[in-house]
């Protein structure tokens, strides 16, 4: 009797969490530059040295991936399509496990996490989870 109650409680809690997860996952948010806390990597700006590639003349899509991340591959495909589609947009995929200093500094907690940098390297947008292509394109449009 007790067990049945526990099973239902867990399934209900997990369903509520799952619905919340589904609606928030991959959502593109405007990054709060001041709470990004990236002091050890040049103030609030990411540069070519910290991410390993030259910044795009319009924007840079910085993806953090890990070995046990199922949607990282799909995220990579979407961001590669976008960088191929829009001039001046560069995509870089960073192995989170091998760059824990940067991960801590940027407070990356999940993979995939995508940051959109403007031409100067300011973090302008942030999404964790598989982003939708339309959202990435819309976020790029909002940079100008």
């Amino acid at each position: 009797m007790n067990g049945i109650f526990i099973v239902f409680a867990i399934l209900i809690l997990a369903t509520v969490f799952g619905l919340w997860y589904r609606s928030h996952n991959g959502r593109m948010r405007t990054a709060d530059v001041h709470t990004a806390g990236i002091d050890e990597h040049g103030g609030e700006i990411l540069d070519a040295q910290s991410i390993g590639v030259d910044l795009g003349s319009r924007a840079t899509l910085v993806q953090f991936s890990s070995a046990f991340c199922q949607p990282c591959r799909a995220t990579r495909q979407i961001l590669e399509q976008v960088s191929g589609l829009v001039d001046g947009v560069v995509h870089v995929d960073i192995d989170a496990e091998a760059n824990l200093g940067l991960v801590r500094a940027l407070d990356i907690r999940r993979t995939p996490t995508v940051l959109i940098l403007d031409s100067a390297g300011h973090i302008r947008k942030r999404a964790s989870g598989l982003p939708r292509k339309a959202d990435v394109l819309a976020a790029l449009g909002e940079l100008d």
Partner: peptide, 30 residues
């Protein structure tokens, strides 16, 4: 109960456990 919640989320919502916990473990470990 924890295992049941995770298995249900995986089956019903395609929840990726590795995405959520692997990096947190790594960040705590070092």
């Amino acid at each position: 109960a924890f295992a049941l919640g995770a298995a249900f989320l995986n089956a019903a919502f395609n929840f990726c456990l590795g995405c959520e916990v692997f990096l947190l473990f790594k960040r705590l470990a070092r």
